[in-house]
């Protein structure tokens, strides 16, 4: 769906999306990484379950909500990728996380 302008000479890091490992450039947003990795939906809406991908990329539309490192409903376009990040599709409403 999206590719890098220049695929050589990019520093990368490893992260996982839906349990699969990917190498992605350092410094990009999670939403950009999702598009780069060819993921076809990043969430199912809590209302109708319909699939979505990033829309505005600037933090206003809240269509790129994902579960990131176990935290539900994170704005993927506002978070930078980190080494070993765990990224999952947001399935409807948020799960309850026990506070430790």
């Amino acid at each position: 769906m999206f590719r890098l302008v220049d695929e050589t000479s990019v520093d990368t890091l490893k992260l996982s999306i839906e349990g699969r490992e990917y190498d992605v450039p350092v410094g990009i947003s999670v939403a950009a990484a999702v598009l780069l990795c060819g993921i076809t939906r990043l969430r199912n809406t809590p209302v109708s379950g319909s699939p979505r991908l990033p829309y505005c990329m600037m933090g206003i539309c809240f269509d790129c909500l994902m579960t990131i490192d176990g935290f539900p409903n994170q704005q993927a376009c506002q978070l930078e990728v980190r080494e070993n990040m765990t990224i999952e599709i947001q399935q409807g409403a948020a799960e309850l996380l026990q506070q430790r």
Partner: peptide, 13 residues
Amino acid sequence: GAGQILLKSAAMI
């Protein structure tokens, strides 16, 4: 604008 942000901040097209 999203397309542009991808170009500016991730060099993606």
